[in-house]
Nucleic acid binder design. Structure first.
Lengths: 206, 206
DNA sequence: ACGATGTAACTATCCAGTTAGTTACCCTGA
DNA sequence: TCAGGGTAACTAACTGGATAGTTACATCGT
């Protein structure tokens, strides 16, 4: 037998050539990899493998590892902003939507946190989106629907953290609690607690 | 002039030989490095350099990079637990103490978060400490000093996150706010807001 | 036939961990 | 009181494997 070093048809049928589809696959694989390991811990080879694509294409489509991370962050950021609105400064509805979104998309929270820790500058779009949210809260404050003794940006920061307080709780606290922290019943019951807490925080005192 | 390639007396006088002191220097340098870069992003060579010690000593005193990280986490965890008590289930006092501690020791929060993201299992000591805190909250609930419609562990998780909500806020929110987010005046005023929020969350409704 | 899409193999660098020592210090015995 | 030997503390230089990024080439659609 000759040494047979040629490439056969590569085992499976090669995926049809489609730059957009490949790019999307790479972005999706990168989202998972960065969510699990962060920027420094993520491995470019693993991303290519997860996507079933060639590593080279990452460099063709995204430039380098850092810019791939930026692309993931932008994408996630846009997705959260779209999925979790702040209708009329209603922070309770916001907290509910955010809790549901993060529960369904755990990678969203992880990406956001890795980003906050490894890379700081906000993009223009993001800044604009946050500004809208703060203004919406300020309007609700003027209309007497939210307490006014806490500045809008701080109120927003507080509600943001409350909405993910259980999902982001230290594992030691989960363990101290005893029950399965992520069971559907536990999460449903926590959702109620969490919304009660948000209601208490945002309502005008009196 | 001859090329002068010899090492002179190493510039500064060599630090006196003291294993405990060197170990402490390494732990301190590792705390800074891990706080800034996380486990994957930290560099063992940089830690040695920061400590002004030889890299080899890290392996002698701590084993390897992972166990050095564990040592840092344990140390920080113990320090926070000692500095931020939960007297009689008083969550407002707890939030104040935690805010003040984290403000004075920003690396404590970063280490805790890196740890939560890169490495999960709680230690025995930590678990015991959290159990005490939860029990202390449960006692206060029985005595009518805290609301009872939110389970103790969840109430603790919520207060924990509120206490660092501003320091952990997305940079885009800081930017949207306009003012310098970390100026002493801003932090003092946020401290009041934050404590007002905690009071609203924990008080028994009625 | 040519540009866009894709691939395998390669390279240069980085970096955790190791090797093979050297230096400071202490203790013991003469 | 000090020679010398034993040990703890420390060090420079190295190694091998991992890893980001590149090169040179193949194949497809038009």
């Amino acid at each position: 037998m000759t040494p047979e070093r040629g490439l056969k048809q590569s085992g499976t049928t090669p995926r049809p050539r489609d730059a957009e589809a490949t790019k999307a696959l790479l972005l999706h694989a990168a989202t998972e990899e960065f969510a699990e390991h962060g920027l420094a811990g993520a491995r470019v080879d693993r991303i290519a493998e997860r996507a079933g694509a060639n590593k080279r294409l990452i460099y063709v489509y995204f430039g380098d590892k850092d810019r791939l991370f930026d692309a993931v962050v932008d994408d996630q950021s846009r997705a959260v902003m779209a999925a979790v609105p702040l209708p009329d400064g209603d922070l309770v509805a916001f907290a509910a939507a955010r809790f549901d979104y993060v529960r369904a998309h755990p990678e969203a929270r992880r990406i956001a946190h890795w980003r906050a820790f490894e890379r700081s500058e906000p993009t223009h779009d993001e800044l604009a989106a946050y500004r809208l949210r703060v203004e919406s809260i300020e309007a609700a404050q003027r209309e007497g629907r939210l307490r006014t003794d806490i500045p809008a940006a701080e109120l927003f920061a507080i509600v943001l953290r409350i909405s993910e307080s259980w999902l982001a709780a230290p594992s030691a606290l989960w363990a101290a609690d005893g029950r399965d922290p992520l069971s559907p019943e536990r999460l449903a019951s926590h959702r109620d607690s969490m919304l009660a807490a948000v209601r208490s925080v945002v309502q005008v005192p009196g």
